[in-house]
Computed example of a mutant assay.
Amino acid sequence: MHGLTGFTITDRPVFGPQARVQFAAAYPETPVILRHDLAEHPLLTLDALAALAGKLPDTAIEYNRGDLPLGVDGKPAPTGIGIEDTIRHIAISDSWAVLKNIEQDPAYEALLLALLGELRGEIEAKTGAMLRPQGFVFISSPNAVTPYHFDPEHNILLQLAGHKVMTQFPAGDPRFAPDTTHESYHSGGPRELVWRDELAASGTAFAIGPGAAVMVPVMAPHHVRNGPVSSISLSITWRSDWSFAEADARCWNGVLRSAGLRPRAPGRWPQTNRGKALAFRTWRRLLRAS
């Protein structure tokens, strides 16, 4: 892949044949570590990322202290250091930062689409059209913690510099994220989850360093602990009709629960959740029309 907006992504595919076979077998529900070949890309150096942060809108930037517990109550407090200095001095700033929706910049959009394009066939064979591709870059100080949370996208986290351990928990299991928490999140609530120490024994730890990536199923609870040196990771994400239906079914369950009912949780893939999703979409249209 050459020549996208004037730079070379790589001389060969980022995901080799073995990684694609492993991904196809695991996607969308089984976490798996994959090998990748995206080392030392010029768009993903600290200086390039600091420059990107200076161009992104404030809504696309989140950063805070890195010395956090596994569970937090709401958004952590800011550090008082600007985002560009935070990134350039990440080795000593004791911080965690994320640049969201990097596809807002044309060069990063080209990189994101090229990476996802390598896996499009495997993705669409399972969950249909690849929808809403988005990219996120995480820059973390030594030993920084990303607290326990979940995300609504299909996700592959590529480790580029440093090492980290992502501990994942089964998606869709109310022991790790109650149904009411899912409903609240899909109705606009926070993604942070309540951590209890007794959950630890049920997690699966995935240790990744440069050249390794881990797939994260939709809404799989997880937390991340950085290693002893600073870290850069790239998260490439997408949605599917299935993931949107699951989200809307959760919203409909919230409506039913507010009416005093006790609805069953949506099913995990390959169940479609189409009935509840259509009910919520119809209800939402009627509210907007009234």
Rank of each mutant, 00 (worst) to 15 (best):
D179V: 11
T204F: 10
T180P: 02
W96H: 07
F136P: 04
T272A: 14
D85G: 01
I90L: 09
G135V: 10
A247H: 09
A50Q: 03
H154W: 00
A48L: 04
G16V: 09
R239D: 12
E103H: 14
D11R: 14
M130N: 11
P152S: 08
R274P: 04
E198F: 10
D73T: 11
L119C: 08
F15A: 04
I61P: 05
L157Y: 08
L119F: 05
D241N: 09
Y27E: 06
G117L: 03
A161K: 10
P152Y: 08
D173R: 04
P228K: 05
S233E: 06
H41T: 01
P42C: 03
L68C: 00
G260Q: 11
A129M: 15
F138D: 05
G275K: 13
G6V: 09
I236M: 00
W238Y: 12
W252Q: 01
W269D: 06
L160D: 08
R225A: 01
C251S: 10
P28V: 02
I102S: 06
H163L: 07
A129K: 15
G54M: 02
M219G: 03
P17K: 13
L34D: 07
P221V: 04
V218A: 04
F15C: 07
A97T: 11
R274E: 15
N253L: 06
T10H: 15
G117V: 05
P147S: 08
R264P: 07
T180N: 11
I33M: 11
V224L: 13
G203N: 08
I139E: 06
K164L: 00
E122R: 11
T5Q: 15
L160H: 00
L112W: 05
Y148E: 07
D85T: 15
V14D: 01
